Lab assay of single mutants.
Amino acid sequence: ADDEVAKLLVDAYRKNDEDKLEEVKKRYNISDEQVKRLIRKVL
Rank of each mutant, 00 (worst) to 15 (best):
L9P: 00
L8N: 03
N29V: 03
K7F: 09
I30A: 01
K7A: 11
D17Q: 06
I39F: 03
K36P: 05
K7L: 10
D17I: 04
I39W: 02
I30L: 15
K36I: 13
L43F: 08
D19G: 12
K7G: 07
I30Q: 01
R37H: 12
N16V: 03
K41W: 07
L8V: 06
K20E: 11
K41F: 07
K41A: 13
L8Q: 11
R40Q: 14
R37S: 13
V10H: 08
D19F: 11
D17A: 04
A1S: 13
K7Q: 12
V10S: 06
I39V: 08
L8A: 10
A12D: 01
N16D: 07
L43P: 03
A12I: 04
V35I: 09
L9W: 02
L9D: 00
R37D: 15
V10W: 14
V24W: 04
R14I: 15
A6F: 11
E33I: 06
K15N: 14
E22A: 11
V24I: 15
D3W: 14
V35W: 08
A6Q: 08
Y13K: 03
L43R: 05
A12V: 02
R37C: 12
A12K: 00
E22I: 09
R40I: 12
I39Y: 01
D3I: 10
R27G: 03
D11R: 02
K36F: 04
I30Y: 06
L43A: 06
A1G: 11
L9N: 00
I30K: 02
R40L: 11
R27Q: 10
D17Y: 03
R27H: 08
K20P: 01
E4R: 10
I39Q: 02
R27C: 05
V35H: 02
L8T: 05
V5H: 03
V42D: 05
K26L: 10
R40Y: 11
K7N: 09
L38T: 05
D11Q: 05
R37T: 10
A6H: 07
E23L: 07
K20H: 06
L9H: 00
D11L: 03
E4Y: 15
K25S: 03
E4D: 11
V42T: 09
E23A: 10
K25Y: 01
R14M: 15
V5Q: 02
N16A: 09
R27T: 09
E18V: 15
K26E: 07
N16G: 15
Q34L: 09
L21V: 07
E22Y: 07
E22F: 06
E4A: 10
Q34H: 08
K25P: 00
K26N: 09
L43S: 06
R37W: 05
V42H: 11
D2M: 14
L9E: 00
E33W: 04
R27W: 05
D17P: 01
Q34W: 09
D32W: 15
N29S: 07
D3A: 12
Y28N: 03
Y13T: 04
Y13P: 02
E18K: 15
A1C: 13
Y13R: 02
E23H: 05
I39A: 02
D19N: 12
E23G: 04
K15Y: 08
D32E: 08
R14E: 14
R37P: 01
N29A: 07
L21K: 02
Q34E: 15
R40W: 11
R40M: 13
R27D: 04
E22V: 07
S31I: 02
K36G: 09
K26A: 10
V42W: 14
V10M: 13
L21A: 03
L21E: 00
E23I: 07
V24D: 00
A6N: 07
R27K: 14
L8H: 05
N16I: 03
K36M: 10
K25N: 00
L38W: 02
K26I: 09
D19S: 12
D3Y: 11
Y13G: 01
K20D: 04
E22H: 08
E22C: 08
K7I: 10
V42I: 13
N16R: 11
N29D: 07
E23D: 08
S31Y: 01
E23T: 06
A12P: 01
K25V: 03
K7R: 13
D3C: 15
R14T: 13
K41G: 11
V10Q: 07
R27V: 06
K26Q: 10
Y28S: 01
D19L: 13
V10R: 06
K41V: 08
E33H: 05
E33T: 06
N16P: 03
R14F: 15
Y13Q: 03
S31R: 02
L21M: 12
V5R: 03
L38V: 09
D11I: 03
R27E: 07
E18Q: 15
I30C: 04
K41N: 12
N16K: 11
D17W: 05
E4P: 09
K7T: 08
E33N: 06
D17V: 03
E18G: 12
K25H: 00
R37M: 08
V10C: 11
R14K: 12
A6L: 14
L9S: 00
A12F: 05
D19W: 09
I39K: 01
K15Q: 13
D32F: 04
N29I: 02
R40T: 13
I39H: 01
V5F: 07
V5I: 14
V10L: 15
N29G: 14
A1K: 11
E4L: 12
D11A: 04
Y28Q: 01
R40K: 13
V42F: 15
A6W: 13
D2K: 08
D3Q: 08
R37I: 14
V42C: 11
L38F: 04
K36R: 12
E4H: 12
E18L: 15
K25R: 08
K41E: 12
E33K: 06
E4S: 09
L38Y: 04
K20C: 08
R14V: 14
R40A: 14
V42K: 07
D11P: 01
V24S: 01
L21P: 00
V5N: 01
Y13M: 11
V24L: 15
Q34T: 11
K7P: 02
L21T: 03
S31N: 09
D3M: 11
K7W: 13
K26S: 08
